[in-house]
Amino acid sequence: MSSWLEHLIAKSSEGSAGKTGLWRTFKPVHNVEKCNRCLLCLYYCPENVIKVYHHRFIIINYEYCKGCGICAEICPQDAIEMVEEEE
């Protein structure tokens, strides 16, 4: 590939803005007990960092989660709590 092409064409990649988890001031913490696995948190996560495994386990990718808090707001079970990040 000509070198100028490398300067014009960007490649698909996670973390195009770096580790956006560092933006967080509050961290969503998932409570398995309260969760009814409706997956609204996943569907409405703007960052696409919530995944479900085996139809059961909700995993939040804190490397990139910006801590917007939409998941906690939308959860009908109050199963996600926003906890202040420590320094």
Partner: peptide, 9 residues
């Protein structure tokens, strides 16, 4: 072909 043409850089 997931390329982006003209991104800020």
């Amino acid at each position: 072909n997931a390329v982006t043409i003209g991104n800020i850089g």
